[in-house]
């Protein structure tokens, strides 16, 4: 039997002893088909029982065992160690964007709180019927992906926006908001869209894509965020910079097939938004001095009529 040794470099932190996190190396003989979780338990049994981590179901449904492997969040119970070895080493750390309590355990309270911000429960229409409310299979299909969320916080962990702004409601909450916005039985769609279009909501997502890349289920928050934005745009929730920015794109490309960047900046900020316009001045000035300013006469593509025809049917093509 071939020697199957792997080095697990695990981030440790003991609140009673350590000032800051540090790592500890464990050499381990890998069992065939071993998962990260099973191997961590092996380390605890054979080498160090003080390693702390969260785990429960072992079958990728409870969401307890999210952690960072080689810098990216995964679910430990269903991740094969063999796929994580880099130069003989596997780096293990707790999930990000949350305070470390001990070793691989983080304070997950802010995550539960962020869910509360989107009113994560059905707000149905009127009195309940005697039987079930009806819903078509297709309507169930619209909420099916977002209901697979196991609240593991892998998306929250790797979200770039949360890294610089903990007040951002976060990808899991947005996916949860999606689950209700698109539930045909919910009566509060417009209220939800209105609230989620405000600061710390859906337009604060920087589109880094980490959430969907890390999501271990079908939830895929970025796709849900995109769908929320589409619905918000369709339903006229335009009173925010994100929507204005999207309108700017629509208008510019619809007219020229191309972006008039100068105009887009002004459009997004708001033509009458004095503080916003003023805030654009430093960078605008700098770019002007450098000769970097996009041409004042905006570019129009050849055969722009084809594009105009497409945009002429904009609303029709929403369906």
């Amino acid at each position: 039997m071939a020697n199957n040794k792997v080095l697990f470099r695990i981030q440790r932190f003991d609140p009673e002893k350590d000032e800051k996190p540090h790592h500890q190396d464990f050499e381990i003989e890998l069992a065939p088909g071993a998962t990260i979780l099973k191997t961590l338990h092996q380390i605890r049994a054979e080498q160090d029982p003080t390693l702390a981590l969260r785990y429960s179901c072992g079958s990728a449904i409870c969401g307890s065992c999210a952690m960072k492997i080689n810098g990216h969040a995964i679910l430990a119970c269903k991740t094969q160690v063999s796929e994580c070895v880099r130069d003989g080493t596997v780096r293990v750390a707790p999930i990000g964007n949350l305070k470390i309590l001990r070793d691989l355990v983080v304070d997950i309270e802010p995550f539960w709180e962020s869910l509360g911000k989107v009113k994560p429960y059905l707000m149905p229409k009127g009195a309940a019927p005697d039987r079930e409310r009806t819903q078509t299979p297709a309507q169930f299909g619209s909420i099916d992906p977002s209901t697979t969320c196991i609240l593991c916080a892998a998306c929250y962990s790797d979200c770039n926006a949360l890294e610089v702004d903990p007040s951002f409601v976060g990808p899991a909450s947005l996916a949860k908001a999606h689950r209700f916005i698109f539930d045909s039985r919910d009566a509060a769609r417009q209220q939800r869209l209105r609230e989620i279009s405000q600061r710390t909501g859906v337009w604060d997502c920087t589109h880094c894509g980490e959430c969907s890349t890390r999501c271990p289920t079908e939830t895929k928050p970025l796709e849900r965020i995109e769908e929320i934005r589409v619905q918000a745009m369709a339903d006229g929730h335009h009173g925010n910079a994100g929507a204005r920015h999207a309108l700017g794109f629509r208008e510019s490309v619809g007219k020229r097939g191309f972006l008039d960047e100068n105009w887009l900046a002004l459009r997004s900020v708001g033509f009458f938004n004095l503080p916003g316009l003023i805030s654009l001045m430093p960078v605008g000035l700098r770019m002007m001095i450098r000769g970097k300013m996009p041409p004042l006469i905006p570019h129009t593509i050849d055969k722009v009529d084809e594009v105009k025809k497409i945009f002429a049917r904009f609303e029709e093509l929403r369906k």
């Binding site: 995109e226 794109f249 497409i310």
Partner: peptide, 10 residues
């Protein structure tokens, strides 16, 4: 990606 979040079909 912006037009895609306004009107994916377009």
């Amino acid at each position: 990606g912006v037009i895609g979040e306004d009107n994916p079909m377009v």
